[in-house]
Nucleic acid binder design. Structure first.
Length: 223
DNA sequence: AAGTTATGCAACCGCTCGAGA
DNA sequence: GTCTCGAGCGGTTGCATAACT
């Protein structure tokens, strides 16, 4: 509470085209990262988070806009059965789609189709979502040999950004995880929509964690 | 045509995690 | 080992506008 610098006023609300242009130009010139300094250096009166979000969701190249295809929709439904509200992971399977877009699409289009279709998402409870963040999908794994959360694009970006730290490891593990997930998604184990499949983090997490462990041992420690 | 309600989406908020000092 | 800060994530809010009365 001590460091109370007179913060410059931060603009909020919808982004204007000229702000977009400034941000886009800035990021294309200087690259992503250091979002907190972007507003100062670019002259945008926006917070770092806001800049990051705007770039990630709208200005980044290869962003796909417009309605979801049937395949994308199907993928979202299946992935959601598997992962719950792990929007960034789900979005990672949909090239050009962002977590925010997937989340919105789920909440507005798909969620309401479900039998219990409420506006807000909560097939896994909010508390579960918070306490069981899937950072190895997330998780509280020890560093290394984990699958960083985020889209594959982000992963690639991260590997470079962090100095190739464990780029190879991450990518390999990621690939293994992807193929495993493909298997899991396409497997008859996963029933179709509306079946009585209740996603529960725990069993899948346990399975997943051991899979990741197995993979990291399996590659002989060089990954 | 005007007012009201519902819907969709963009953006913000609060939290967690990891890295570095 | 602890603290601080930046980044990222999911949940939620609020605005714009479409649909309805």
């Amino acid at each position: 509470m001590e460091r109370k610098e007179a913060k410059p006023k931060v603009r909020k609300g919808l982004w204007k085209p000229d702000e977009d242009l400034v941000l886009k130009t800035y990021v294309e010139t200087h690259g992503e990262g250091n979002w907190s300094t972007v507003s100062k250096k670019s002259g945008l009166m926006r917070g770092g988070k806001s800049c990051r979000l705007r770039w990630k969701n709208y200005l980044r190249p290869n962003i796909k806009r417009g309605g979801m295809s049937q395949e994308e929709e199907d993928m979202i439904i299946r992935m959601h059965k598997l992962l719950g509200n792990r929007w960034s992971l789900i979005a990672g399977r949909l090239p050009g789609r962002t977590d925010n877009e997937v989340k919105n699409y789920w909440n507005t289009h798909l969620n309401k189709r479900l039998p219990s279709g409420k506006r807000m998402s909560t097939d896994s409870t909010p508390d579960q979502n918070k306490s069981k963040r899937l950072r190895v999908l997330g998780g509280s794994q020890p560093a290394g040999n984990t699958i960083p959360a985020g889209s594959t694009e982000e992963l690639e970006g991260k590997s470079q950004e962090k100095g190739e730290r464990s780029a190879v490891s991450d990518v390999r593990t990621q690939q293994a995880a992807q193929s495993m997930m493909n298997y899991y998604i396409e497997s008859p184990m996963v029933p179709d929509n509306n079946a009585t499949f209740v996603f529960d983090d725990e069993p899948f997490l346990a399975y997943w964690d051991s899979f990741v462990l197995f993979e990291s041992i399996g590659c002989g420690g060089d990954c």
